[in-house]
């Protein structure tokens, strides 16, 4: 008999959809291009995660697909960084390596490893602790994931070339812990689509530079 089922009590809550529009609609018909074969996510979330519609990924033929995670800073003090939990920024996780998004993808910067994440619901923020301060951070600065496995003064963005969109909301299950082994997320993605920038994840300068649209507010890649 499953004794645990009788003695295990817990509660959960979640929000499903009810979200904001992001795609630029056009009755003339939208463009949509597939990538070749897709790929396995190379930087999966460890716990429960989510990919938003119009979230960017980096697709390189024959290689892992990388999720482009970006985080908008609410405030920061040394190694404590408050990241906006507004549904636009991604959710930080312990073990991620973050850096302030450089102006160019080839510019190095200081990275730090996330050692603790606390969700502060009242203030709509994630209180993130990193092992090394990321330099001067102001409100609305954008953090991205950095390469490497430890804090470095010469880190580069982990995802220097986000080039495809995730097409629809998708929940991600944990890939670590609970005895899970060999968790692989194989995803496809689309490109040649347009989304509203204000409703996408925070986009740093080096990503905005890829924008093909001449219309302010629209991101086309």
């Amino acid at each position: 008999m499953q004794v645990t089922n009788l003695s295990y009590f817990y509660e959960t809550s979640r929000k499903v959809r009810g979200g904001k529009f992001v795609w630029v609609k056009d009755s003339n018909g939208e463009q949509r291009n597939n990538v070749l074969l897709g790929g396995t996510i190379g930087n999966p979330n460890k716990g429960f995660g989510h990919l938003w519609a119009a979230q960017l990924l980096q697709y390189t033929p024959g290689q892992d697909m990388l999720i482009f995670r970006s985080f908008a800073v609410k405030s920061a003090n040394g190694t404590t960084i408050n990241i906006k939990a507004d549904g636009y920024s991604d959710a930080p996780e312990v073990g991620q390596i973050l850096m302030k998004a450089p102006t160019k993808a080839t510019t190095t910067g200081q990275s730090g490893v996330v050692t603790n994440v606390v969700y502060d619901e009242a203030n709509e923020q994630f209180v993130v602790t990193v092992d090394t301060a990321l330099g001067t951070l102001a409100a609305n600065d954008i953090l991205v994931e950095a390469n490497g496995t430890a804090a470095s003064a010469a880190a580069l963005p982990l995802v220097p070339n986000p080039n495809v969109f995730n097409e629809a909301d998708r929940d991600l299950l944990p890939t670590e812990g609970y005895g899970i082994e060999n968790a692989n997320y194989n995803v496809s993605a689309v490109y040649n689509k347009q989304a509203w920038i204000a409703r996408m994840q925070p986009l740093p300068t080096y990503v905005l530079a890829k924008n093909r649209s001449y219309i302010d507010g629209i991101f086309w890649i």
Binding site: K25, S27, N28, G29, E30, Q31, R32, N33, N34, V190
Partner: peptide
């Protein structure tokens, strides 16, 4: 309307 190979619903 066409959305690449798929459809869009307006």
């Amino acid at each position: 309307t066409p959305n690449g190979m798929l459809k869009s619903y307006h």
